[in-house]
Design a protein around this nucleic acid. Structure first.
Lengths: 147, 147
DNA sequence: GACATTAGTTAGCGATGTGAACTATCCTGA
DNA sequence: TCAGGATAGTTCACATCGCTAACTAATGTC
């Protein structure tokens, strides 16, 4: 892999990265064909990955405020993708987890729904794919909540 | 640079990438401190980079529909960041370009406003920065309109 | 000069995210 | 024990952003 000159212009990279991420997100939102919005899908996948969790936990993971979580969970529950179980010890709290329908949707999404993006990725060479793969992980760390 | 195993699971990468980009975008939108929303900033930077352009051109570049452009331009003009010049040959059209205030805002944004992201980038090592730098360009290509 | 095409706007909708204020519940210390 | 603060979630009202459908105005074409 040819090594590029080191990145010295952090502000420039920040500008470029912000615009790229922002535009990519807008495009992906428009092309989403999962039958579920990216917001809901992101929440669903978080709940799947981190097991049963409280609404507040979801807010922390998604980096979203509590009222937003209330609505997201409302939609997911209404769609039958997630279910709430009251906490017997603390009656302010419910635990949310995926229903079988939620798990099935996630399976399908992973297998088939990213057609648009996967198709476009298919045009890239292996280097570029490896770069995007690593970048996704780095992005996660960069925009991580605590730190 | 240690070479990772080649990416074979396109669908998996697509899923991960979509979630990462989407969450990063949400975070960046919230942390935006430019005094102007990311949508407007993206449009402004496009107009700056591509010189005077018509509303339709902006729609194409931003990959957004015409009514959206109408509103974006309305806001930018109202903020005094962009000005319209009627096309003498085709009276349906105006050309938009940055005002001095618009240019100054872009300068400031580049110099100072990406504090949040730049600060977080500062924690990464050079490899990660180089990866993000290349990833931004690749993302641009992947979500490019035509093709 | 009728008719299709093109550029942009208006109107109205839906999805997302927010802060402020509220309810219900839990915890703590005098 | 119980008053008062802390915590979990909800409701409400608001702003942003993007879309489609339908419209106006101007241009081009046969």
């Amino acid at each position: 892999m040819p090594s590029a000159p080191p990145v010295t212009d952090l502000a420039g990279l920040a500008s470029h990265l912000r615009l790229s991420v922002f535009r990519a997100s807008r495009t992906l939102r428009r092309e989403s064909q999962a039958g579920i919005s990216p917001t809901l899908l992101a929440a669903l996948s978080t709940i799947e990955r981190h097991g049963p969790m409280k609404a507040g936990d979801l807010a922390a993971h998604e980096q979203v405020r509590k009222p937003t979580v209330t609505r997201i969970l409302g939609s997911l529950v209404a769609e039958g993708l997630v279910e709430r179980t009251p906490d017997p010890a603390d009656r302010r709290v419910s635990w949310v987890q995926l229903t079988p329908a939620g798990r099935m949707l996630m399976r399908n999404v992973r297998r088939r729904s990213d057609r648009y993006l996967a198709q476009r990725l298919r045009r890239l060479d292996l280097d570029d794919l490896a770069t995007l793969d690593r970048a996704a992980g780095i992005l996660d760390r960069v925009t991580e909540p605590a730190s």
